[in-house]
Computed example of a mutant assay.
Amino acid sequence: MGLLQGSVLMAIKLIKDHSSQPSESGIKFIYNKSFNTSKALMLYHPSDFPSFDFSGSYMPEDYTKDISRRMHYAGFHFFNELNVCRKNYWEKAYFDLRNFVFEGNRKLVFKAVNKWAPMRFMADDNSSNCNIVLIQAIAAFNPWKGIRFSTYAFTCLMRALSRINYKNTAEKMVQCESLDHLFGNNFDFPGSSSVPVSHTNSLAVLYTYFSKDCDILDEREKLILFELFGLGDKPLTSLEEVGKLLKLSKERIRQIQFIALEKLRKVLIPNNVV
């Protein structure tokens, strides 16, 4: 192997190593052998593409892949460029292209958040987290493979929401182990003239939220809380048993329990402090 050929192979190896790790500037790219061909600049030049406004619709799949290839090419040149001015040019091109793909596919975030029913009451926080996930998905997506970006990114978003839901549930389920935790010895109900209410009276007021006339909880949520906490002289029922009764998984029953208790907490405790 000649010295020149060995140097080229070593350079390509270093570039591939860079492609697996983001730089200090946040640039992460996927290397493709076409970057070293004579037609690369013509195929992937960052400024050589038509610009459209996709704010009212999804960016077409072929267009997304084309911009993604140019983005990775810009990242390749960023690591390979020695001239500072040119390096800054490729860095700016990389982020401009990445942001363009992000804006064109941002509706995937809203679609994922709206689809994740257990966490709709946290839609704002979820949207912020999902925006970050979408940016990461854009950087990690390989446009040279036969994978649709929308499918890949949406899967990443749904998995992220699942992890967020699991984390939030684990943190807050301690507060939801018993309905008693909704009340304190000195708890004042709204409109009670700041007179402390006894624990017995607190539970009596709580039962009003399970009446047919109260629509704070839906019928399924009322049934689940009644079964799990043995309300109305019912024996305590396990998550698994309630799941069999409603033909739902144990984890889904846990999620509905959490959502129902959050609804009650917002009504009973205005400042949401337990």
Rank of each mutant, 00 (worst) to 15 (best):
H199C: 09
V195A: 13
L203H: 15
S211E: 14
R163F: 00
H199E: 11
N165I: 00
K167G: 01
T169D: 04
L182A: 11
M158V: 00
F189T: 05
F210Y: 02
T169Y: 04
G191Q: 05
T151E: 11
F183S: 12
A160C: 11
H199F: 07
S194F: 12
L161K: 01
K172Q: 09
Y207S: 15
Y209C: 05
C176T: 09
G184P: 02
D180L: 07
P196N: 15
L157F: 01
Y209K: 05
S193C: 11
G184W: 02
F187G: 05
S162M: 00
S202R: 03
V174L: 07
G191E: 07
M158A: 00
N168I: 03
C176N: 13
C214I: 01
A160Q: 02
F183R: 10
T155P: 02
N186Q: 05
K167I: 02
F183K: 10
Y166S: 14
Y166D: 14
F154G: 01
E171P: 00
T200G: 07
S178F: 04
L161S: 03
F154R: 01
L182P: 08
Y209P: 04
T208A: 05
F183A: 14
F183I: 14
D215H: 11
V174T: 09
A204R: 13
L203C: 07
Y152S: 06
V197L: 13
C176G: 03
T169C: 02
N201H: 08
T169Q: 05
V195E: 14
Y209I: 01
Y152Q: 02
Q175P: 00
T169V: 02
C156R: 06
N186R: 04
C156D: 13
V174E: 10
T208E: 09
D180R: 08
S211G: 06
C214F: 01
V195Q: 14
S193I: 11
Y207R: 09
P196I: 13
A204G: 12
L161Y: 03
C176F: 12
F210R: 02
S202Q: 11
N165E: 14
D215F: 07
K172N: 11
Q175K: 10
A160S: 15
D213G: 06
C176K: 07
A160L: 00
D215Y: 05
E177W: 00
V195N: 11
S162L: 00
P196V: 15
T155Q: 15
E171W: 01
M158N: 01
F210H: 03
R163A: 00
A204W: 04
N186K: 03
A204K: 15
I164R: 01
E177S: 10
E177L: 12
L157P: 06
M173Y: 13
P196W: 06
T169H: 04
P190I: 10
N185G: 10
T200C: 08
S194A: 14
R159S: 04
E177I: 11
F183Q: 12
H199Y: 06
T200A: 15
H181M: 11
E171K: 03
T155K: 14
N185A: 11
S193V: 10
K212M: 13
G184V: 05
A204N: 15
H199K: 12
D213W: 03
N201M: 10
P196T: 13
G184L: 08
